[in-house]
Amino acid sequence: MQITQPLAETAERRRENLFVRIVRRLADSRELTLFVLVVALALAMSIVYPNNFPTASNMRAVLLNLAPVGMLVCGMMLLMIGGTFDLSVGSTLAFSGVWAGVVAGWWGWPAEIAVLVGIMVGALCGLVNGLIVTRIGINALIATLGTLTIYRSLTYVTAGTGVTPITDAFAEYGRAADPLFRIQSPFWAMLVLVLIGGWLVARTRFFRQFYFIGGNPRAAQLSGIRVDRLILIGFVIMGALAGLAGVLGAARLNSAVVNAGVGIELKVITATVLGGASLKGGEGTILGGILGVLFIALIENAMIINAIGVFWQGLVVGLVLLFAVSLDRFKTSGRA
C-alpha cells in the first residue's frame, strides 16, 4: 500500500550524501533556491566590486530598472498559475504609455486623468485578450501573439514617433522619489503591487481558484469554479498592470516612446518561470516571480559592472533559466 512508501524513501534518502540532500532541499522550494542565489550573488558582487556594486546609486539604478518587469511579473504569474499567459504585454505597455502621453501632452488634460486613461487602455487591451481566449477559444499563444503586433501597430498609428515632452505635472508621477532612499516612484509602485499581489495570490480564496484552474481546468469547471470568467479577470489584471508600467515609464522619461517594452514579454516570462511557474499551470508564487526578477537584474548588473557587453547577458540568463528548471528533476514532493 501507499503508506509503506515514505518509509522506504527515508531509508533511501539517508544513504544519499550531503550534497544531494542540499540540492533536494533547495529544489523543494523555488523561492528558497532563488533567495539563496540572490543573496550569494549580491555578497559575491559586494566582495568582488566593493567600489561599484554596493553603492547607493547602483542600487537605486538596479531597483528602478527592474520595476517594469517586476510589475508585469505579478500579472504574468497569476496567468501562468491559471495555465495561460500573455505575450502582448510589451505592446500593451507602449500603447498605454502613448495614450497617457497623448491625453496629457497633446490634449493638455490633467495628469491624473492621463494616468487613469493609460491604465484603462491597458485594462482594455487585457480585456480584449481575455475575450479572444475565453469566448472565441483561441489558444493564448496565438491570440496574444496576434494582439502583440496589433497593439504595437495601434501604438504607431496613435502617436507616430511618440509624445515628447509630455508635461511636467505628468512627469512628476514617474519621478517623485522618497526622501530617505531617493528611489523614484516606479519602484515603490512595484513594491506595493508585489506585497499586495503576493498576499492576494497566496492567501485569498478568490485567487486560490487560479491554482485549481491551472491544475486541471476541466475538474475546476466541474467543481463549480467559473473558469472562463476568472481567466478573463486575470487578463484584465495583466493588462492594467502593463498599463501602469507603461504610464510610469513614460512619466519617468517625460516621453511616451512607441518602442517601449519591445521584447519585455520574454524577459517577464523568463523571470516568471525562473520564479517557479510551470507552463502547465497550477504552480508558482508572486514572491518567487519577484525573486526571479531580482536575480536576473543582479546578473545583468554584474555584467554591466564587469563591462562584459550586453551581448553576453542573454546567454547567462538563458543558462540560469535552464539550470533552475532542471532542478525540478530533483524535487521530492512532485508527482512520481
Binding site: T204, R205, R208, Q209, Y211, F212, G215, N216, R218, A219, A220, L222, S223, G224, I225, G282, E283, G334, R335
Partner: peptide, 23 residues
Amino acid sequence: AAGLFLGMDIVNNVAATVLSRVS
C-alpha cells in the same frame, strides 16, 4: 481528467468545492 487535481494534495482537492467554507 475531470474529477481530481492530481498534482495537488488531498487538502486542496477536498477544498475545491467549498472554498468559502474553508476561508
